[in-house]
Nucleic acid binder design. Sequence first.
DNA 1: ACTGTTTTTGGTACAGCGTACGAAAAAGGG
DNA 2: CCCTTTTTCGTACGCTGTACCAAAAACAGT
Lengths: 209, 209
Amino acid sequence: MARGRPPAFTRSQVVTAAIRVADSEGLEAVTMRRIASEIGAGAMSLYTYVPDREHLADLMVDAAAGEFALPEITGDWRADLLALLTVQRELMRAHPWIPSVLAGRQLAGVNLLRFLEHGLRALEPAGLPGVTRMTLLGLFTGFVTAYVTGERAGRTDARDGAEQIAAAVTSGQFPLLAAVLAEGGDPDLDFARIADWVITGLVDRAAAG
Amino acid sequence: MARGRPPAFTRSQVVTAAIRVADSEGLEAVTMRRIASEIGAGAMSLYTYVPDREHLADLMVDAAAGEFALPEITGDWRADLLALLTVQRELMRAHPWIPSVLAGRQLAGVNLLRFLEHGLRALEPAGLPGVTRMTLLGLFTGFVTAYVTGERAGRTDARDGAEQIAAAVTSGQFPLLAAVLAEGGDPDLDFARIADWVITGLVDRAAAG
DNA sequence: ACTGTTTTTGGTACAGCGTACGAAAAAGGG
DNA sequence: CCCTTTTTCGTACGCTGTACCAAAAACAGT
C-alpha cells in the first residue's frame, strides 16, 4: 500500500499556517505563495492539499472552530445556550477574519456541524420542532457575529471612520444619532446579559408560537 | 468658476454600474476595468470618482440602501421596527452581495446612517437609554443578515454543499441533526413572525433591564 | 535489480487584478 | 493666446490564482 511519492506536508499544516497568517496580518495576507513559503513548500504544492484559495478559507474557519471545546450540556437550556454562544464569541474574537469568510454563506464543515449538533442538544429541553430549533440557532450565530463586529467597531471606529460620523452628526440630518453619541455613556452592555435577552426572548416566543 | 477639464462621468454613474454588475454576476465581477468599460470610460478614469476598489464597495452598499424608502413612523414601535427590518431584508434580497461587504465592519454612509436614525426614532417610545438602543439596532441588523443568509442557503444548499451534509449525517456523528433533517417539514417560518419574536423579545428584556 | 505505475513536488507561464505614473486633452481666467 | 487647473486614459509594474508538465520518490511485479 501507499503507492506513489509520499506527501511532504499535511492539509492541517497548510490550514494552520494560513490561520496563523490571517490572525496576525489579516485574511488578505493569506495568498497561496505566502502560505507555501510559510511551511517551506513550493507554491503549487499547496494544491495537493487544498483545491483552491476559496476552499482554503472554508477549511480555516472549520479548523479554527475545532480549536474550541464545547461546554458540557447541563440540561438547563438557557445556561447551555449561553455557554455555546460564549464559545462562538471567543472563536470570533480569536479569529476576526471569520465573519468575512462566513458572510452570506452557510458552511458545513465537521466542526461547524459539531457546534450545530451541540446547539440542537442544548435546545432539546425547550421542546421545539426541529425546523424551529435550526432557525433559532442560525439566528443566534447571527447575533454573536453582530455583537462581536459591533464590539470591535467600538474599539477601532473611534480612529477609523470617525470623521465620516462626525460630519454626519454636525450636519444636523441625524438629530437622534447626534443625541445618543453626545449622551455618550459606557457601552457596558456585557455579552452575557444581551445574549441572555436574545436566548430567552427568542425561545420563549418560539415556544408560545 | 469650474476650472479644468470637465468630468465626463459622475460618481453615481460609476457606483450604479458597479451595483448592476454585482447584482447580475456577483461581487467578484466588479473589477475596475470592467466597471470602466461598462460606462465607456478608461480604467484609470474611475479613480477620479472613487479612491479605490474597497471604497467602491462601501459606496455600493450605501447607494443600494439609498434605493429604499423608509416607512412612516407610526409610534407603535413593534410595527415600526418590523417595517424597518422588512426594508432591510428587501435590501439584502435585492443585493445579495451586501452581507459580504458589510462583514466584520461597520460602515457609516449617509443612507446607512439614515437607517440608523430611523431605527432610533422607531425605538423612542420604548423608553430605552441611547446606548441600549444603538446596540439593539445593531443586533437587529445582524438578525436580518442571518435570516436572509439562511433563506438563500435553504434554496441553494440543496444542490450546493449537500454532499458534505449528507456525508456528515450518514456518519452517525450528528444524530440530532440527522433527525431534524429527516423530519423535514416546510420551513414556513415567515419573516414577519420571527422578526417580531426578535423585536419584542429583545426590547421587552432590555426594558426590564 | 530493473521496470512500470502512481503520486507529489515545484518551476515556468499566463491571464487578470489594482493601481502608480505621466503625457495629452479640455476647460476657464488673465 | 498662454497659463493654470482638472480630467482622461494608455502604459507599465508587481502581485494574484492556478494550468501545465517534467522531475522526483515511493511501491509492485518480474
